[in-house]
């Protein structure tokens, strides 16, 4: 099924720079990024280590502040937002998937998902909704397991469930398949692709994994903190992982 990419712009970056200051040393992570992400995109940001993939993802995820330029996420200029407002944006509109899964080890899979709903202030049938999300993603059998009782692939799928539980417009995934074998990577990417196609969730990955690149419909290549290439695939494939 082909997803509909609308004209709605979720991310609008204009001449975005990010400089890290360590003592008197300035390190340029991003050097003027211009980019737009439309609703429904399934996009991979690729590039060599140190090219600025994770930095860009962190900026889009309102986890960090831009040094220069402007970055609008869901119509809001994050450089003008307070720490609290950025937290609100992350809570209500963004989802995150991390390389190291980063599930809370003291909570079960269901509680990890429920956690986000609780943060959002959902009071009505929270655990039922969490189970529903797990069920929809075929993870219900892991509902009562803690992360230590699950494989890496299972944990990462639960992490995706946690990221999409609050029905965010945009999910940011930083190297989501880096620690997964081929089979688990395929299951995970299928799952995210399904969410993209059936729920309209926009995904942005930072990755150097060719399996992810194969699934992505748009591939942005960063080199030395700049966009070197921005390719939208004409003929979408199933990825072929």
């Amino acid at each position: 099924m082909a997803v509909t990419i609308t004209d709605e712009t979720l991310v609008h970056a204009k001449d975005v720079t990010k400089v890290y200051q360590t003592g008197e040393v300035e390190t340029y992570a991003l050097r003027g990024i211009d980019m737009e992400v439309k609703a429904g995109d399934f996009m991979a940001i690729v590039g060599p280590s140190g090219s600025g993939k994770t930095t860009l993802l962190n900026l889009i995820g309102a986890l960090d502040a831009v040094t220069g330029g402007s970055l609008e996420v869901l119509g809001k200029d994050i450089s003008k937002m307070s720490r609290r407002q950025r937290a609100d944006l992350r809570l209500h509109a963004l989802g995150f998937v991390f390389q190291a899964y980063n599930l809370f080890p003291v909570l079960t899979a269901q509680e990890n998902v429920e956690f986000v709903l609780e943060l959002q202030g959902v009071n009505n049938n929270r655990s039922g909704r969490a189970r529903e999300v797990l069920d929809r993603l075929g993870l219900l059998e892991y509902a009562n397991r803690r992360p230590t009782q699950m494989s890496g692939g299972q944990q990462q799928r639960v992490a995706v469930a946690r990221a999409v539980a609050s029905q965010p417009r945009l999910v940011l995934a930083d190297e989501p398949t880096a620690n997964l074998d081929g089979e688990n990577a395929r299951i995970l990417l299928d799952m995210m692709r399904d969410l993209n196609e059936n729920q309209g969730t926009t995904f942005i990955f930072s990755t150097h994994d060719p399996r992810v690149v194969a699934y992505a419909r748009r591939v942005v290549t960063l080199v030395d903190g700049k966009v070197a290439k921005d390719v939208v695939k004409e003929n979408d494939t199933d990825g072929g992982v």
Binding site: R84, L91, V116, L119
Partner: peptide, 12 residues
């Protein structure tokens, strides 16, 4: 872990 909590939208 606190960074993850913060990333998920948890307030200070």
């Amino acid at each position: 872990e606190f960074a993850i909590l913060s990333a998920l939208g948890m307030k200070s």
